[in-house]
C-alpha cells in the first residue's frame, strides 16, 4: 500500500446557481486547480445550467436581493433595473482585474482541460437539449456518472 499524503488530485465542482458571483467562483476554482496541475470538472445542475446555455450565458446577473454583502436594503435591491446596474458595475470591476466574461472563461476552461458536464435531470426539467448548450460541454450525464468521474484518490467535491 502506498501512503496517501493528502494531496488534492482532482476538484469536482457542482454549480447549482447562475448568479454571476457563483458562476465566477466555480470557474476561478476550476481554472485555479488546473493552473496547479490539479484536474477539474464542473457539473452544471439546476439553475447552474444557465452558465452553459448558449442564449443565457451572456446575460447572467449579480443577485441584489438576499445578498447582505451588497450592502443594499432588500427593498431597494428589488427595484427594476437594480440587478442590471449592479451587474454592469461588477462587470466593469472584473474587466479591470483582467477577469474574462463568461463565454471567454468557458473557452479558457475547456482549453485548460476542464471537463464540463450538464445534469441530465435538470436538462429534462428545463426542456434543454444538448444543442442549446455551449459547444465545449462534454456530455449530459447523471449524478451517478459524475460520482464515477470522481472516484479517484485525492478527489474533492465542492457545491457552489
Amino acid at each position: 500500500m502506498s501512503e496517501y499524503n493528502g494531496e488534492i488530485k482532482k476538484m469536482m465542482i457542482i454549480l447549482s446557481k447562475a448568479t454571476l458571483e457563483n458562476v465566477y467562483a466555480a470557474f476561478v476554482l476550476a481554472n485555479g486547480a488546473r493552473m496547479e496541475g490539479i484536474e477539474a470538472e464542473i457539473f452544471f445542475t439546476f439553475f447552474g445550467l444557465e452558465a452553459v446555455h448558449k442564449k443565457k450565458l451572456e446575460h447572467l446577473h449579480v443577485a441584489t436581493v438576499g445578498n447582505p454583502a451588497m450592502h443594499m436594503p432588500t427593498m431597494l435591491g428589488g427595484l427594476p433595473g437594480m440587478e442590471a446596474l449592479a451587474t454592469s458595475m461588477m462587470k466593469k470591476e472584473m474587466e479591470r482585474i483582467d477577469m474574462p466574461d463568461v463565454h471567454e472563461f468557458l473557452d479558457i476552461l475547456t482549453a485548460s482541460g476542464v471537463k464540463l458536464w450538464a445534469c441530465k435531470l435538470a436538462m429534462d426539467m428545463f426542456h434543454y437539449k444538448k444543442e442549446d448548450l455551449y459547444e465545449g460541454v462534454d456530455d449530459v450525464i447523471t449524478v451517478g456518472d459524475f460520482y464515477k468521474q470522481g472516484s479517484v484518490l485525492g478527489t474533492h467535491m465542492l457545491f457552489v
Binding site: M35, G37, I108, A111, S112
Partner: peptide, 15 residues
C-alpha cells in the same frame, strides 16, 4: 494558445 501551453508544460503550466 492555452491548449498548447498546457501540452508544453503539463503540470501547472504557468508555475
Amino acid at each position: 494558445d492555452i491548449k498548447e501551453f498546457y501540452a508544453l508544460f503539463p503540470q501547472g503550466p504557468l508555475k
